[in-house]
């Protein structure tokens, strides 16, 4: 697995229709890959991190054998897709009215 393959995967996601940007944060909430500008990245990293931690613990508390895999938030302007994994979390923004 090489750097080029990683870049290919990210490019594929970025090229989906309506995608405004993506970012990947590690378990400490530090952004490691991002296509958004610095201040937006920092904000999303911090806020989505705490939200996804909360969501994960909610699911665990309801059923300890269950695990949060994916969630998305529909907003007026865009949809935020969040894929929290063990080590990393991927966040993708997609415009709501992409037509």
């Amino acid at each position: 697995m090489t750097q080029a393959e990683v870049d290919d995967t990210l490019k594929r996601i970025q090229e989906h229709k309506g995608v405004q940007g993506y970012l990947i944060i590690n378990s400490d909430g530090i952004p490691i890959r991002s296509s958004l500008d610095a201040s937006v990245t920092q904000q999303y990293a911090a806020l989505i991190k705490s939200l996804s931690d909360k969501a994960r613990s909610t699911i665990r508390e309801m059923d300890p054998s269950n695990e949060l895999l994916f969630f998305r938030m529909r907003t007026k302007k865009h949809e935020i897709l969040v894929a929290p994994d063990k080590e990393y979390t991927m966040i993708v923004l997609q415009a709501t009215d992409a037509s």
Binding site: V6, T9, I13, A83, E87
Partner: peptide, 12 residues
């Protein structure tokens, strides 16, 4: 990291 991307990409 690549394994993570492999897991996450299909669902996203």
């Amino acid at each position: 990291f690549n394994k993570f991307l492999g897991r996450v990409e299909p669902i996203v």
